[in-house]
Amino acid sequence: MATSLQEPTFLIMAALAAEPRHGYGVIQDVAELSDGRVVLRPGTLYGALDRLTEQGLVAVDREEIVDGRLRRYYRLTDSGAAVLSEEARRLATNAEAAVARLRGRTRAARRATGEIA
């Protein structure tokens, strides 16, 4: 996948990066990763998981029954990890470039202030 992921998709994949998680776990982790900014609803989450599973980026890891409720765990596949890694690298490069430009702006502002002073 040569192009950028949408933010919710990126966060779902990031939530599954370290270990397999079930739906509730993914929702909690996405909220934590995004500092509470992105709160997924179950319909949206399972739609995204279906799409990622179809694309081979996510796979079902195992199933458990806890308190009579079905918990299906999902894991990131190798190709999913590769896509996430590429996207993370792309975002990091963009962020570094932006920070570098902002540093330049701060220096220029200081110079301007010095001249005025």
Binding site: G23, Y24, R69, L70, R71
Partner: peptide
């Protein structure tokens, strides 16, 4: 699975 997640939330 979806109902379980909804009830968890």
């Amino acid at each position: 699975e979806i109902v379980a997640t909804l009830l968890d939330l």
